[in-house]
Simulated assay, not measured.
Amino acid sequence: MNGNTTHVEKPLTDEGGEVRELTAADMAAFSPLADVLPELAKIVPRRGKQKAPTKERITIRLSSDVVEYFRDSGEGWQTRLDEVLKAYIAEHRRAA
C-alpha cells in the first residue's frame, strides 16, 4: 500500500485465501511495482499507453486443429493467425 492509505476497508482475501474482486479504491491504494520491487521492475517489460485500439476483442470458434497448429508455433501465435486472415482478405479482394 502507498503512504496515502494506511488500511483497506475489508480484507483482500477470505478465510480460504480467495482474493475478492478489487475495487477502484483498492487499486488506488497499491504502490507502483518500482517502489515495492525495484529489481523486478527493471526486468518487467512496459508498454506505452495505446493511443487507440487497433484490434477488436471477439469470441470465435475455430477447429481444434487450426488452434493447435498456431499455438504450437509458439509465442505470438494469435498475431500470426491475424496475419494469415489479413493475407486471405487481400488476396480475395483482388479477385473480386
Rank of each mutant, 00 (worst) to 15 (best):
residue 16 G to Q: 03
residue 8 V to G: 10
residue 76 G to L: 01
residue 24 A to D: 14
residue 48 G to S: 15
residue 53 P to V: 15
residue 67 V to A: 06
residue 4 N to K: 09
residue 5 T to K: 06
residue 68 E to S: 08
residue 92 H to N: 14
residue 92 H to E: 11
residue 88 Y to W: 13
residue 29 A to M: 13
residue 55 K to H: 11
residue 47 R to K: 15
residue 91 E to K: 09
residue 77 W to I: 00
residue 19 V to G: 07
residue 43 I to V: 13
residue 36 V to Y: 10
residue 35 D to M: 03
residue 91 E to S: 09
residue 18 E to S: 06
residue 66 V to F: 02
residue 28 A to L: 14
residue 4 N to P: 00
residue 33 L to F: 02
residue 85 L to V: 09
residue 73 S to I: 00
residue 45 P to T: 09
residue 50 Q to N: 13
residue 2 N to W: 04
residue 36 V to S: 11
residue 64 S to C: 00
residue 41 A to Q: 12
residue 39 E to S: 14
residue 90 A to Q: 09
residue 70 F to Y: 14
residue 47 R to C: 12
residue 10 K to Y: 08
residue 10 K to Q: 12
residue 34 A to P: 02
residue 37 L to A: 11
residue 58 I to L: 12
residue 36 V to T: 14
residue 9 E to Q: 11
residue 22 L to T: 09
residue 51 K to T: 10
residue 60 I to K: 02
residue 52 A to F: 15
residue 59 T to I: 05
residue 48 G to F: 10
residue 2 N to E: 03
residue 44 V to K: 09
residue 81 L to K: 01
residue 9 E to G: 12
residue 3 G to V: 04
residue 19 V to D: 04
residue 14 D to N: 15
residue 20 R to W: 06
residue 92 H to P: 04
residue 41 A to I: 13
residue 52 A to S: 14
residue 50 Q to T: 15
residue 45 P to S: 09
residue 2 N to H: 05
residue 65 D to Q: 10
residue 68 E to Y: 01
residue 80 R to K: 12
residue 72 D to T: 07
residue 13 T to C: 05
residue 46 R to V: 15
residue 75 E to V: 01
residue 42 K to S: 08
residue 63 S to F: 00
residue 49 K to T: 05
residue 46 R to L: 15
residue 76 G to I: 00
residue 69 Y to Q: 08
residue 25 A to Q: 14
residue 57 R to Y: 07
residue 49 K to Q: 10
residue 38 P to C: 09
residue 81 L to G: 02
residue 31 S to P: 02
residue 68 E to Q: 04
residue 31 S to I: 01
residue 29 A to E: 10
residue 20 R to Q: 02
residue 52 A to E: 15
residue 84 V to Q: 03
residue 83 E to F: 01
residue 47 R to G: 15
residue 42 K to L: 09
residue 66 V to D: 07
residue 85 L to K: 00
residue 96 A to E: 07
residue 42 K to E: 11
residue 27 M to D: 08
residue 4 N to A: 06
residue 82 D to Q: 03
residue 56 E to M: 11
residue 46 R to D: 15
residue 25 A to T: 13
residue 83 E to R: 08
residue 80 R to H: 06
residue 15 E to P: 07
residue 76 G to V: 00
residue 8 V to R: 15
residue 23 T to V: 09
residue 45 P to G: 09
residue 8 V to P: 09
residue 9 E to V: 12
residue 58 I to P: 03
residue 5 T to W: 04
residue 85 L to G: 04
residue 88 Y to K: 12
residue 1 M to F: 05
residue 13 T to I: 10
residue 85 L to D: 01
residue 15 E to C: 08
residue 58 I to D: 04
residue 48 G to K: 14
residue 84 V to L: 12
residue 63 S to Q: 02
residue 29 A to N: 05
residue 65 D to N: 11
residue 31 S to Y: 03
residue 21 E to W: 08
residue 28 A to N: 11
residue 75 E to I: 00
residue 28 A to T: 15
residue 71 R to D: 04
residue 27 M to S: 08
residue 59 T to N: 07
residue 82 D to N: 11
residue 58 I to F: 04
residue 14 D to M: 03
residue 86 K to I: 12
residue 85 L to C: 08
